[in-house]
Design a protein around this nucleic acid. Structure first.
Lengths: 136, 136
DNA sequence: TCTTGACTTGGACTCTGTCCATTGTAGGAT
DNA sequence: ATCCTACAATGGACAGAGTCCAAGTCAAGA
């Protein structure tokens, strides 16, 4: 955790109480919170923090590669603090729960050159969908 | 095309001019339009068609499995008429263009049982990201 | 301690999508 | 061919997620 704050400071971040709280909320447990959920949790510690600041901070963390944005359902984006460990997602089609999963193999090698249409392919996301035990 | 209209009629769809136009727009070329783009194209042929009807019709087509919903960017959902041929998507991180691609291998078999956490996994989506030739 | 440019605020605004009461009509029944 | 009616379309209000901006605040270097 303090790792994260250190890295951010090292990158020239001005360390404000708002940014610290947002970083701490994300680092708390590895669930996948929406921006508004992050805001709600941050506001428990810092009641006057604004939504705009949370959005700004999340955007910066994403740019810095410290956090990954996940949009699995076309609704609110979710923020995944587990950005330094490659993984994919397993989503419950009914309740929306997300779990990190680690498939074997690398889908990048499964896309032959003639299927790349001249794109410079740099990343791949895999989303598994199904029903979680509670919803099944 | 008329295939599609036939299938829909066979499923008890009441065939209105609005539904016909939406189906024809989707069937036109295999691009991935947003709901508002579908509405704009439909309105060229049927100026008084409402947004609500387009949303309703798209939702029905998705339920019937004739069209797939794709949300790659957390912005507007896109509608993929190519629902009867399994494929994945390649998205340009800069301009948002989407291409259908056909990777080899099946990512479902790459998810071991101990990584399924009791979920009943039924589907998997793979999204490749990169820069298209025009943006690179 | 002072200064200043980066950061935060909150409210207005945009975009995407949903809801609902009202009006219209496709297509089976007569 | 006409009538009925359940299903569909309309459009305007509303909601959720996110962005923008002008004004005020403050972290941190001098």
């Amino acid at each position: 955790m303090s790792d994260l704050l250190e890295r951010l400071r090292g990158r020239g971040w001005r360390m404000t109480s708002q940014r610290r709280v947002v970083a701490e909320v994300l680092d708390g447990d590895h669930v996948h919170l929406t921006a508004d959920e992050v805001h709600a949790r941050a506001a428990r510690r810092l009641p006057e923090i604004s939504r705009a600041t949370v959005y700004n901070t999340l955007g910066e963390l994403v740019s810095l590669g410290e956090v990954t944005e996940v949009s699995t359902d076309g609704r609110a984006k979710r923020y995944d603090p587990n950005a330094h460990h490659p993984h994919q997602h397993l989503v419950c089609s009914s309740c929306g729960t997300i779990r990190d999963v680690h498939p074997t193999g690398d889908p990048l090698v499964d896309l032959p050159a003639e299927e790349r249409f001249g794109f410079t392919v740099s990343d791949v996301e895999v989303t598994y969908r199904g029903l979680c035990p509670a919803c099944a």
